[in-house]
Nucleic acid binder design. Sequence first.
DNA 1: CCCCGGCCTTGACCGAGGTCAATCCGGTTC
DNA 2: GAACCGGATTGACCTCGGTCAAGGCCGGGG
Lengths: 252, 252
Amino acid sequence: MDTSSVLDLNQLRRSCASCALHELCLPAGIDGEDLKRLDATIRDKRTLDRGEALFRQGGQFHALYVVRSGSLRTFVEDASGNAQVLGFHLPGELVGVDALANDHHASQAEALERSSICELPYEHLNHLLAQMPSLQRQLMRVVSREVAAEHQHMVVMGRQPAQERMAIFLRSLSDRFARLHRDGSTLNLSMSRYDIASYLGLAVETVSRLFTRMEEAGILEVSRKAVTILRPDLLEAMCSSPRTGSKKGDAL
Amino acid sequence: MDTSSVLDLNQLRRSCASCALHELCLPAGIDGEDLKRLDATIRDKRTLDRGEALFRQGGQFHALYVVRSGSLRTFVEDASGNAQVLGFHLPGELVGVDALANDHHASQAEALERSSICELPYEHLNHLLAQMPSLQRQLMRVVSREVAAEHQHMVVMGRQPAQERMAIFLRSLSDRFARLHRDGSTLNLSMSRYDIASYLGLAVETVSRLFTRMEEAGILEVSRKAVTILRPDLLEAMCSSPRTGSKKGDAL
DNA sequence: CCCCGGCCTTGACCGAGGTCAATCCGGTTC
DNA sequence: GAACCGGATTGACCTCGGTCAAGGCCGGGG
């Protein structure tokens, strides 16, 4: 059954025009002849199995990528092999931007589940950008969105205690699922606890404990990789530490 | 004497061609007629005093900026007024990219000392990009550099203990000074201890203690805002925690 | 000149969360 | 179905660095 659904996906991927992500992705705001040309430069040969690498740290840069289905994690490994997860990437999201600066990848990207990827060879893309101001604009907008998201994550890493980090992480995932017209309250965490811990700058044990605590509090239902948000209101409240914020009326 | 030197700077700022930052900045790799056109779109009216804002969080976006002299800090403020410093920006560095995504600034930028700024009105810039593929390429490269730097900082925030954070911070500053053909070993820290602490995700007290400890260790000479790196080798060694790294020969 | 107010430093204390270690659970192999 | 293995959970302990509190330093204004 898996094979057939994958085949379907590949067949669906014929044009950006017919893609469900159209409005969230690079083609947003582009149509007609221009869209056809963008379409023509996209190579969709990439399908990745769980754990397979899209590109490796230090590897030669030659394309940008957009997740079409599934999910990726990007991370860097330092000299001694410790990994730091930089982000998780859902359909419609762009990866590989950090490689343009000096023509080789500063990070690596791996599939968290069977995923399909749109590949945008950079030389082709450049020609297109020269001819399509609207695409140029949209590309900058997408990159800017990425930068803004990373800024948000720095706030999390800089100031927030563990519990707030988890809450913000889950809320962000939920929001992104919703944007994809999926159910924002039943999350399928394709990444491991280790990945989450690394991404949030915490120990795996802490992540695990927080899941349990939030389940006990009736906010989540956690079963392995399947997480259901039962009380979005409480989750939201948990995103900002009670310490900062309100001046009076702190329950505690 | 201050007034005259500022006037000089403003007079120097006539063209990108004559700018000392030429090769580090947007115009890198661009010359002849194209450079003139880029020049024409840059408005250099901006001179900021210490503490003055370049743009405010939530403000309407209309331009990108490049630091010409002096330095900036960018930061976000959450609902309760706590600030998280996102970065410090030296001459030749681009700020304001996170605002393109939805047309208003997601962060704010303030001068750390008297600074002059090149302003690139986005509408003009866009016209230019449509006509100058080389500028388009260079802009993406500069943005990519910024993204890569932020990834590096996430590694710091995610895994590193306090001492390593400080060491990496100082090394990074030193490197950037050197790139500007300044002396990389005599740093002038235009930002406050509070800014450093926020940027590194530490308490001010910790930053202060680390300065003292590194001075006692003979690595630095610290006097208020003036920091001299006496032993770059030791500073470098301090950048990676001894815990990770080597497999044998760990003292302790 | 002295006082005042930021900024910075130093010391003493303490708690959130990291580390270590044991166990559990679900999936895979034979 | 027994053995195995990697990921996840749980508990006990301890450390790093945050918090609180008390000066010190320097620069600016009266």
